[in-house]
Amino acid sequence: MINQPQFYRQPEIPGTFSRWVKSFNKNKLAVSALIVLLVIILIAIFAPWIAPYDPTAQFEELSSPPYWYDSGNSKYILGTDDLGRDLFSRLVYGARLSLKLATIVVLISATIGILLGCMTALTNIWIDNIILRLTDLILALPSLLLAIVIVALIGPGLPNAIYAVAIVLIPHFVLVSRNAIKHELNKDYVTATILDGANKSRLFTHSILPNILPSLIVQLTLAFSTAILEISALGFLGLGAQPPHPEWGTILSESYVYITIAPWTVTLPGLAIFFTLLSINLVGDGLRDAMDLEK
């Protein structure tokens, strides 16, 4: 389910891999971010055990503040929202939902994007040119704008929001994989492999793929954070997950009404999004640095 540990599945090239780990480990900030991220992932996986209540269950206490407030109630650690739902449970389930959605989005867009990228890189120049123009155009446009327009056309709601964000992310993967492959194709070792008589698929899986993996991994983490941000932005604008889904952006947009009365229902879900994004970005930065050192 979680795409994060993909690079563990590359035992063929332990040398490179262990060097990455080593240089990544030097970056203390990135390592601690990774730990935070792992904790968030664990929370997401074990949400039903961690959350004290059902995220949609409604209790008597409406808009009860977090327990450290004077009028707080220790039954609800982070308080309740305006319908009396436990905010902590909603945020925990929100982690599950957000990470799940982002994973689906990244899987869809990475699969299609990388396939298209390989196709364009390995086929004739015309297709390459056309797809390149198209991706350039889409990349120039603000991705949230495109996602909003797509959702507007096919209708708001969770599945449509996923498609919209996935479509918007595809061009990034196309461009990154295409450029990486083109870059590798010009190198001597590829020519050598071709001269050795390797066919196209072997050339790709054995020679090119391992070498473009670093850029793809960095792109994956980047896409993951973009996906989380955009799904929650769509949720905030009322175009993504619909209530009572405990999606972070949706929770925020619901609680905006209560900003003057129950500010914690605004600050806490935002903190959840923020910490998740921050840790992913830090890990991404760390990975990029680690892999750059490699070159």
Binding site: T56, Q58, L83, P243, P244
Partner: peptide
């Protein structure tokens, strides 16, 4: 004041 909230309660 909030038909969406009302709908959520009815949903439950």
């Amino acid at each position: 004041p909030n038909a969406k909230k009302m709908a959520e309660l009815i949903q439950q």
